[in-house]
């Protein structure tokens, strides 16, 4: 417990406190931080409707990515859990195999696939279709996020399916429920905590992602991650970047809290 607490303090609580501390100062004229006076100016600036619009857009794109990742990830996890035990290890290994390659390289690989002269459009052209605009649009951004984060969903849901006692489903079938009814009324509700955990993974990581919108979106999509990145690095306005980060952290904490409550309730119902 104690070492865990120490790491949590050092790697999580302290950095967050540093961010929260910066909120109350202003950017120096030439960048850096002006420590001479405290102010609420950054908070006032952060409430500009512009940032609400950017945040809403990020939520929309991250939400879409989350939904698709769940739709892809659940069947995959379900199939893996039904596979013979020996195959399971191999299949899970395959699911996480992409993580052995650097994130940037995997993202660039999508550019090679999706660009107008890329593999997919070349293949389409050979059967008389296309070229389709697959790159530098919202489709590409969502695709990139889904591709990168679906393995987390698979792992989270697989873990939930593993913990599920098969006798529940057997009892349901014994009592005359169809396979579909059993899935909808027994399996899915009992694995809801795994679904929620996977969803939170994808959503939180997508919101903070700035590389995928930059590379696959052609820089045309400003997500919360890009906005914060730009404030810290391009505008060199650390205090304002910290303010925006703090806002995002608070919203994420509320979401995580909601997810925890939801999971606890789902467990309680069992």
């Amino acid at each position: 417990m104690l070492p865990g607490l120490f790491w949590l303090m050092a790697l999580m609580v302290l950095p967050c406190l540093l961010i929260f501390g910066l909120i109350f100062f202003e950017r120096g004229i030439y960048g850096g931080i002006d420590w001479s006076a405290m102010t609420l100016e950054n908070i006032r600036r952060a409430f500009d409707p512009l940032y609400a619009v950017i945040l809403w857009d990020s939520f929309r794109i991250a939400g879409l990515a989350t939904a698709i990742a769940l739709l892809v990830g659940y069947p995959a996890a379900y199939a893996i859990s039904k596979a013979p035990e020996k195959a399971q290890t191999a299949l899970l290994f395959l699911a996480i195999l992409p993580f052995w390659t650097n994130y940037l390289i995997r993202t660039y690989a999508w550019i090679v696939l999706l660009n107008p002269a890329g593999l997919i459009n070349t293949a389409l052209a050979s059967i008389g279709l296309g070229p389709w605009p697959l790159l530098y649009n919202e489709f590409a951004v969502v695709l990139g996020l889904v591709y990168n984060y679906t393995p987390f969903v698979i792992l989270a849901i697989f873990a939930a399916l593993q913990r599920l006692d098969p006798s529940y489903a057997e009892a349901s079938r014994d009592l005359g429920a169809t396979a579909a009814t059993t899935f909808w009324r027994i399996t899915l509700p009992l694995t809801a905590p795994g679904v929620a955990a996977g969803a939170v993974f994808v959503f939180v990581l997508s919101i903070g992602n700035f590389i995928t919108p930059d590379l696959l979106g052609g820089g045309k999509f400003q997500m919360a991650g890009n906005l914060i990145y730009d404030q810290f690095l391009t505008a060199r306005d650390w205090p304002f970047g910290a303010t925006l980060s703090a806002g995002l952290i608070i919203i994420m904490l509320i979401l995580l809290f909601a997810q925890a409550l939801f999971s606890r309730r789902a467990m309680g119902e069992r």
Binding site: Y30, L50, K220, D230, A235, D237
Partner: peptide, 19 residues
């Protein structure tokens, strides 16, 4: 040239374009 205090308004404009 370095924009000094003008940077805040400048970077907000860039965010508006990006959004």
């Amino acid at each position: 040239r370095d924009l000094g205090d003008g940077m805040k308004a400048f970077s907000k404009t860039v965010s508006e374009i990006m959004a």
